[in-house]
Design a protein around this nucleic acid. Structure first.
Lengths: 201, 201
DNA sequence: AAAGAACCTTAACCTAGATTAAGGGTAACT
DNA sequence: AGTTACCCTTAATCTAGGTTAAGGTTCTTT
């Protein structure tokens, strides 16, 4: 199999990302290339809306996305922020081909790389490296999610905020406090109070 | 490769479990067999304690386990119950070989099948089916965990309790309310109140 | 440049759920 | 068979965080 030369430059971050796990050879890359589509996303644009089936694995090349759910009263609850070199997908909806309960929305303009379900299944069947890499990627995401659940159970809002600042110092600059509050599971008003109390100490 | 005939009967549930995903052939089973150890577990026995590295993937053949974290004040927070044909492992600790923050404890006496880290890595390297199967298993677990996080964010305690009864009718019979309360993120006293209010309606 | 939309903060008041305490019931080791 | 440990419930009191409302500020879009 031959690789287009040069490989389109927008794909480099994705290949680099896979190489962090099990390095890809020329054949893997040749298989991957025609199955990846680049897409530009504007601020506030959705790449997934409640009720739609999540059709793509979305790899974020640039920009910042929020994955959130809207409750019965219309309140938004951020479950995850996704930035450069990470995946923004509703895995449940994608694999079960069921309507999603989630929204994925761009907080900043950005670029993503999309792989469609049949294409990803093709990759899984034709090169075991993709099974391996996505297994490890999802293990990492599982651990991240589990830590988030543990924190929301075991730690109060002030400490969750401090932990967030420590774990995501860059995000805390990049995001409005309303979004951070939603991620922490509190109101913007209460976050404001926490911030005031922290300063006055 | 030849399979011991008969295959030890205690292993049947594990093979059946894998067959739910990508069916195993004789070679896969031959590879798996010598790497699985059966273990009997008594009520209240730990298969993982905080501070220890999680050394095994534990498949539950019978019994019921809780995975929980102890907070700074000594309170226990159940993050998951594990029963027949499911896995009870701290994936983060296992893969990173770091001390766990979690306890895994038997609520009932039971049997588990254990696979050690080097053995699982061997299986991953020597048959891509294991990568595939564990990828899908972990995807399912990720979705389960994500739904749990969504619920704890978007839904109040009464509705979470009702959802628990609906989703795990069997567990709600099998477990004391103290354990269910801990899973729901509330105190046993408050669960008691919820139950009373539900009855009086 | 103006207008609107989103964001941040403060403060008074409100509520879901925690805490403490106490009594009675039930399961499990000796 | 007895006793210890766990479990369930009720009720009074308390608190972390929510709600509402209002004023000021800063982005965004036209």
């Amino acid at each position: 199999m031959s690789i287009p030369n040069p490989v389109p430059s927008y794909i480099a971050p994705l290949i680099a990302h896979f190489n962090d796990y099990l390095p890809m050879d020329a054949e893997d890359i040749a298989m991957l290339l025609p199955r990846v589509v680049e897409r530009k996303v504007k601020r506030r644009q959705f790449i997934l809306q409640e009720g739609d089936v999540c059709q793509h694995y979305n790899f974020v090349v640039s920009g910042c996305f929020k994955i959130y759910k809207v409750d019965e009263k219309g309140g938004e609850h951020n479950i995850q922020f996704v930035t450069e070199n990470d995946w923004a997908t509703d895995i449940g909806s994608f694999h079960a081909e069921k309507p999603s309960e989630l929204y994925i929305e761009a907080i900043e303009p950005g670029h993503i790389l999309q792989i469609k379900r049949p294409d990803l299944l093709f990759l899984y069947v034709n090169s075991p490296k993709f099974d391996r890499n996505f297994r490890v990627i999802i293990e990492d995401k599982f651990v991240e999610l589990q830590n988030r659940l543990l924190q929301s159970f075991c730690v109060n809002a002030t400490e969750r905020y401090l932990a967030f600042l420590e774990q995501y110092p860059e995000l805390s600059q990049r995001l409005p406090n309303t979004q951070i509050a939603s991620y922490l599971g509190i109101t913007p008003e209460f976050l404001s109070k926490i911030r005031k109390d922290l300063v006055s100490k």
